[in-house]
Nucleic acid binder design. Sequence first.
DNA 1: GTCTATATACGGATAGAC
DNA 2: GTCTATCCGTATATAGAC
Lengths: 209, 209
Amino acid sequence: MEETQHTDLNASTEAKIKEAARRVFLKKGYAATRTRDIAEESGFNLSLINYYFRSKEKLFDLIMLEQIQLFIISVMGIVNDPLTTLEEKITILISHYIDMLVKNPDLPIFVLSEIKENPESLVSRLGFDSPHFNPFIVKQWKEKVMAGTAPKVNPMHLVINVLSLTIFPFIASPLFRNRTGISLDEFNKLMEERKKLIPIWVKGMMAVG
Amino acid sequence: MEETQHTDLNASTEAKIKEAARRVFLKKGYAATRTRDIAEESGFNLSLINYYFRSKEKLFDLIMLEQIQLFIISVMGIVNDPLTTLEEKITILISHYIDMLVKNPDLPIFVLSEIKENPESLVSRLGFDSPHFNPFIVKQWKEKVMAGTAPKVNPMHLVINVLSLTIFPFIASPLFRNRTGISLDEFNKLMEERKKLIPIWVKGMMAVG
DNA sequence: GTCTATATACGGATAGAC
DNA sequence: GTCTATCCGTATATAGAC
């Protein structure tokens, strides 16, 4: 280790700037953030951004990449666990997502907006394009199909439904809270309830179709 | 009528620029679009944008407002129809949304991104903050509650679920299609299936909780 | 490493010819 | 109404002092 590298309060300047940039980019998106905003948020001078990261774009790419990788890695452990059943995995995944989203409510719209603008550039570097991406959960699903106990609807619908029911509320949260007048705390309480409800609902969906 | 005003191919320059702006804004968002992009997309000169609309911001506000109003008006007819039951309304709403989203897949992420950045400015002008906003569907719901036939889960969950299952697939479409490799046609066919499936699923959810 | 000052480019907007 | 040329503020990036 060439420098003192912490991630806590007395982190390096580089780390502090990166963290400040993460907050601003996630809040405003790439185009709407000015390097000045990042400088201000970090408490350091404008020029240090270029000193450490060369350019706004490189800094952004770095953050986006880290953000997505973090996300993927955390999910990998769950979908690859040979000790849990398929149903358990789904329940755990939902709970895990909701915890993460309560902490990072801006993440989904950030990632999905930026991917829409940049259709190819980043998704390709995600790492689960590789032929090795064949997690245990896929095996378990195939077994269900072989045993004839899989649902009759196109399984894509079920994947879409789990993600929709889990992620969308956070994307619509600003509009939703504005309309209903409920507080952030009340909203988060609703999301907490959904940890139990979504798995039940999804189980019900499997019987349909 | 002071000028010839069409909305078809030989529309006025003003209308053409507005339509070009709509396309570009919806695709890239406010911050990432340059007035030069709009000029190019419209086939007209840069200065005409300011000639007709004074500024980029005014043009954007106009489009955003029209977009949202269009959306609300189209929904009002459905939720205020005294001739349909509550269940029918939900089914019709879902079908209506999906049709609209197939035609304007960029709309949800556009509206939700811009609202997130601009928490108050526009939502307040929406028009359904008024005390007159008490559509027939609310009455029907209240009757259900009085009769004791309403579901036991917090009804907010059901509203969230309908919107999630309907809208989210379109938001995630770029990522989803990229990952699965399915074409836009196949995707739209999936969404067509959901017109029938979502009402069934939602009905099932009401029994839970 | 961190700051101040500055170069350079870009984007929104306007003046003025036609 | 539509174009060309241009102005001017702002944002990124760098040079150079400390």
